[in-house]
Every structure is written in C-alpha cells, then in structure tokens.
C-alpha cells in the first residue's frame, strides 16, 4: 500500500463519522478527579482514625501492658488503619497519574503531596469528631474488625493478666458492677494497696481497671483510670445514661 493510500484509506473509514464529543472526555476527566478526591478523603479519614487511636493510646500506663516502650508501640499501632491509609494513598496516586497532566509529576512528589493533604484533612476530620465515629461504627457494625484488628480490645480483654476495660452498669456506696469488652459482668472490689488517684465514678463510665481476677465474677482493682477512646463499648446514646449518685473510690 502506498503512503498516499494509507491516508485515503483511513479517510474512507472515518468518512461521515464524527470524533467523540468533548463532554465524553470531560466526564472521564471529572470521574478520575472525583475518584482521586474520594480516595484522598477516605485516606484522610483513615489517618484521622490513626490520630484518634494514637492519641487515646495507653501511653500513661504502657509499663502495665508491656515491659518495653518499643514493644508497646509495636503491639498497639493501628495496622488496619495504616493499611487502609496506604491503599487509599495509592488509589489517589493512581487516579492523579491518570489525569491529563499527572504523568509530569514523579512518584515521590505525588505521594508527598498526597500525604500532606491527608494530614490536613486528617486533622480536620479528627477535630470534627469523625474519627471516633468511624472507629465506633467499625467496632459496632463489623464484628470481624472488632475481633481481629482492635488491638486495645485484645489488650484490655486480658482479665486473667489483670487488665480489664469495662463500663459501669451499676454503682452504689458498696460496690461497682461493670461489663467488660466481652459482655461479662464483674463486681469490682477495691484492693488494700489501691495506688491510683481517686476517681469519681458514675454509671455509664468507661474505665481501665488494673488488678487481679478473684473468681469468675469478682475482680480486685488496685488502679482505676478513665478509658480513653473505645467509645463503642459504652451504651450508644448519652440520653440512655442514668445519672446515679457519685461514689469516690479512695
């Protein structure tokens, strides 16, 4: 075929046919940008949960959980949310690279920019209280997440090791009854060697209780601290919470 014929032949093929309309490409571009933005926002949300998890971690009593600070960090890092964050950063990168001018930017610049915006939106989402809502929702609605990926639940469910997270179901002058992360009720007794500052306790409070298991229903506490995070453990609606007379453990 002569070169002349190639152009003529192509022209015959496209004759009477029109190029794809401009809106077709505009929609494609918008979809790519939209998916990129969604990925960025979901990644930021994951980062907000990472902040939430880290801020509410048991830094104050890490020695009770692990004999080394490094080991404590390793066992309490929110790997699930870091994975989530990495996946959405990569998804945002992929979408950005597929925008019209995305190819001009090197990998590390796109990733750094993505992390920068994830940090900004992550802080914003955290400040707006979205992080705890997401974490609570995952714990309440996805039992698999709650069982497999919630390291704090695992740590504070070790009643035999003397670590218990629970919320108060009843409190009076004589006793405190709590429900632990697995739904078991315990009577909390104050140890003679109670070593923590006194804490006002009301029904519905979430607590970290350190001590030792006495029997299948009783736990002797030598320290009671407020539980940060893990709001999913508590009764969901604040208006369901009864205000009971306060009891100070001394």
């Amino acid at each position: 075929m002569s070169e002349q014929n190639i152009s003529e032949k192509v022209f015959e093929q496209i004759k009477e046919k029109k190029p794809k309309p401009r809106w077709h490409f505009l929609i494609k571009d918008y979809v790519i940008w939209f998916l990129g933005l969604i990925s960025l926002l979901l990644g930021s949300l994951a980062l907000a949960v990472v902040f939430y998890t880290l801020i509410n971690n048991d830094w104050d009593i890490y020695r009770e959980i692990s004999n080394s600070f490094l080991k404590f960090i390793i066992i309490t890092l929110p790997y699930f949310w870091f994975t989530f964050l990495a996946l959405f950063i990569l998804a945002a990168y992929y979408n950005f690279k597929n925008t019209k001018k995305g190819y001009k930017f090197p990998f590390y610049k796109v990733i750094l920019l993505n992390i920068f915006f994830s940090l900004i939106f992550g802080f914003l989402f955290y400040s707006l209280g979205l992080a705890h809502k997401v974490e609570d929702s995952f714990n309440r609605d996805f039992p698999l997440y709650n069982e497999m990926f919630n390291q704090r639940k695992r740590i504070w469910g070790q009643v035999d090791r003397g670590l218990m997270a629970a919320f108060v179901v009843a409190v009076d002058d004589k006793q405190i009854v709590v429900e632990d992360v697995d739904g078991h009720n315990w009577q909390i007794l104050k140890a003679d060697n109670f070593r923590c500052p006194p804490l006002p306790i009301v029904e519905g409070d979430a607590l970290r209780i350190l001590g030792k298991k006495i029997d299948s229903q009783s736990f002797e506490a030598d320290c009671i601290l407020p539980l940060r995070g893990m709001r999913w453990m508590r009764p969901p609606l604040p208006d369901e919470r009864k205000i009971m007379p306060m009891r100070i453990i001394r």
Binding site: K9, I14, P19, K20, K100
Partner: peptide, 24 residues
Amino acid sequence: DPDQAEDVLQETFIKTYYNLNDFD
C-alpha cells in the same frame, strides 16, 4: 513487516481522529 506497520499507522490515525476532542 510493511503491512503490519501500516496497520499500526492506520489505527493511530483512526484513534487520533476519534479522540480529537481530547487533544490537550
């Protein structure tokens, strides 16, 4: 071979034409 090369060229022209509105 020349035929294959011309096929690639034809396809290139056809795609160029259909995507003209996407030209940045």
